[in-house]
Design a protein around this nucleic acid. Structure first.
Lengths: 152, 152
DNA sequence: CCATCATGTAACATACAAAGTTACATGAAA
DNA sequence: TTTCATGTAACTTTGTATGTTACATGATGG
């Protein structure tokens, strides 16, 4: 399956933003992620609705963090994306008449549900602040790849 | 994400086959699953290679179970399909130079790995024989939708 | 031997979602 | 009023599962 990388992408953006004061334009963020500004706006839209970030138009505009990073978990971010399906596999038919299919679904659903629950739980344990702390550990004294260079 | 239903499909086929003696042609099985014979052959190919089923050409040919159903788990069947990816989400970049991305990947990988491991473990706990037993419980005294009707 | 049946497989078509792109409207700042 | 930046619709591209067609291979029955 082609894998959905929106969560990975949006976390990357948020973590970048947490490293220096904003605001950041979609174009700046897009360059850092090697993608398109519209893609950035797309994945950030849900976060804006939930109040995790703000966006301003015009000169000096762009995206700004608007939440307590120690209060927002990866699960919250996932939810802000619209809770896309976590598993690549699913049942052939969701509400089958065939008893064979029902038996198969029951067995798979059990396993699928457990795995999804664990994943969500794990995502709920990690806050953006924790991610930031981990990043700073990795950075040591070095600077991250400097986005201000892009901001001419 | 569009979900991969091959595991669900192949289990359906195997369970059908376990209910009555074979052999079953790809066309018969395809009709029961409301799909195409070639699709059946495709998902059964891996099982044949691992010896879980056999196939014969010509008159009276078709697919036959060739394993001890109490020894084969859903995980084995999954592996026979080529172990397609279980999760619908993944990292944007697998081996990034950017430290921000590395921090994000590390956090997500942890959660992803745990969920995959749990799912595989759960699948490993269920044998085809157990699925069959559950099916017979659901059947009660009724017959499953009768494939022999299709076999003229 | 040959017609029929069934698998094996390549090749192509279809469906669908994420990701990328283009275009333009909206609104804010200089 | 020009410039910048977001907001969003519409379209293109890409990747994968799924569906389909076509034909080769081999087994069975006459």
């Amino acid at each position: 399956m082609k894998r959905d990388s929106r969560l990975s992408g949006v976390l990357h953006v948020l973590l970048h933003m947490a490293q220096q004061p904003g605001p950041f334009t979609s174009e700046t963020l897009a360059k850092a992620m090697d993608t398109n500004p519209v893609v950035i706006r797309r994945i950030m839209a849900g976060l804006r609705e939930l109040g995790y970030v703000r966006s301003e138009k015009g000169h000096g505009g762009g995206w700004t963090l608007a939440c307590d990073l120690s209060k927002v978990t990866l699960r919250d971010v996932y939810a802000a994306l619209g809770s896309p399906s976590l598993l690549a596999m699913g049942n052939r038919t969701e509400a089958p008449g065939c008893l064979v299919e029902q038996a198969v679904n029951a067995a798979l659903d059990q396993a699928f549900h457990d795995a999804e629950a664990l994943l969500l739980s794990r995502l709920g344990e990690v806050t953006l602040a924790m991610l930031g702390a981990d990043l700073r550990k990795r950075l040591g004294s070095r600077k991250i790849h400097d986005m201000s260079a892009h901001r001419a």
